[in-house]
Design a protein around this nucleic acid. Sequence first.
DNA 1: ATTTATATTGACATGGTGTCACTATTGTCA
DNA 2: TGACAATAGTGACACCATGTCAATATAAAT
Lengths: 205, 205
Amino acid sequence: MENATKNQDGRHLRSKQTRQKLLEAARDIFLQEGFQNTTIKQIIKLANTGYGTAYTHFTGKDDLLIVLMEDVMQKFFDIADISFYPSSKEEARRMILDQVHTFFQIAESERDMMKVFSEAMGLSSAINAKWEQIRHKLIQSITNDITYSQQHGLARSDLKAELVARQWFYANEMYQWEIVFNRHGVSLDEIAKTITIMYTDALYL
Amino acid sequence: MENATKNQDGRHLRSKQTRQKLLEAARDIFLQEGFQNTTIKQIIKLANTGYGTAYTHFTGKDDLLIVLMEDVMQKFFDIADISFYPSSKEEARRMILDQVHTFFQIAESERDMMKVFSEAMGLSSAINAKWEQIRHKLIQSITNDITYSQQHGLARSDLKAELVARQWFYANEMYQWEIVFNRHGVSLDEIAKTITIMYTDALYL
DNA sequence: ATTTATATTGACATGGTGTCACTATTGTCA
DNA sequence: TGACAATAGTGACACCATGTCAATATAAAT
C-alpha cells in the first residue's frame, strides 16, 4: 500500500532488469560502433534478449541513446544553475572562465559518448531535439547573466542580451566539439582564456 | 584535333546529358523531399533513366548532392577572397560588417538548398567533409585578416589570431543556420550588427 | 488449479541500397 | 558496308536493417 511507485511485481522487476540490460548493452555497442553502425541485433545479442524485446522497452535506436544522453545532459544543466552575481568586470571574467572550463571538461571526460551524440544528432531528429534543449537552457542562462550585468552597470546595455548570449554560446559549443574530436594542438586552457577575454572585453565596461 | 577536351563522341555527349538530367532531377527531389527521404528511385524516375544509370554517373546520393553543393560553395569561397586592408578600426568594422551581411545573405537566398545541406551533413561523412572545406577556407581567411590587423597595429596582439578567427567564424556559422531555418524574430541586420560590434570592440584597438 | 495480466520472442513484411551480368547504342576500321 | 570494339544504360537480384505482431512464456491473483 505504501509502496507508491508501482505494482511491486516480480514481473515489474524482471522488466526493469531487462530494460537495464538493454541500456548497458546499447552503451557498449554505441561506444564501440558509433550510432550509425550500431544495429538492434547487436544490442539484443549482447543483452541476451529477443529482438522484439528492444522494441517493447524503447521505440528504437534513438530512444535508447536518448535515455543514455540524459546523464550527460544533467552535467550541462548543472552549469546553467551556477549562480552568477559578479560585482566587477574582473570577477565576472573569473566566473565566466570557470564556467567555460567546466563546459570544456565535460567534453573531455565524456569524449566518447559525445562523439556518439554528435553523430546521432545528424541522424535522428529526436536526438537533435534533445540537444536543442541543452542549447536553449544554456543560452537562457547566459542571457540572464548578461541581463544581470547590464542592470548592475557592469556591462554595456546597447546590445540585446539574447543576441550576445547566442554568439557566446555558439563559440563555446563549437570549440567544445573541437575538443571532443581532438582537432586541436592548442591547449584547452588557452582556448578558454582566449574566448573569455574576447567576450568579456567586448561586453563588460 | 583542336578539340582537346575528350573524344568528342556523341556517346560522350549523350553521357553528359544523362548526367545533367540526373543532377537536375536530384535537385528537384532533394528540395522537395529533403536528403533523407529522397530515394534513388525517385530521382531516376524524374530523370527518366534506368536505376543502375545513377550509379554509373555517381557513387550514390551523397555524390549527387556534393556536386550540387559546389555552386553554393563557390559563393562562400568568394567571401574569403574579398580583400581586407583596413587602415582604421572604423574601416575594419565597416568591411567586416559587409562580409557578415554577404555571408548571411547567401543563407537567405539559398535557404532551401542550405536546409538540404544541413540535413545531409549529419547523414553523410562525405558531405560533412565538403562543408569542412568551407569552414577551413573561411577560418583561414579570417586568420589572415586578423594577422594583418595585428601587424599594422590595429588589433591587439596578445591573442592567437587563429583562435580568435575560429570563435568569430563559429558565431557567424551558427547564426547563419538560424537564418536558414528562420528561427528568429530578430532581423538579419540587427544580428549582423551586434556580433560585428562585439567582435571588433574586443579585437580592435 | 485456473484465469488474468504482463513480458518476451522471433518470423515476417517492407523498403532502400548497390552490384553485376546483360542489352543497347555509338564509333572505328578493314 | 559489315563486323567488331568501346562505351552507356538497364533492372533484377541479393543484402540488410527496421518495426510489427501473433504466439508463447512467465508471474500474480483468486
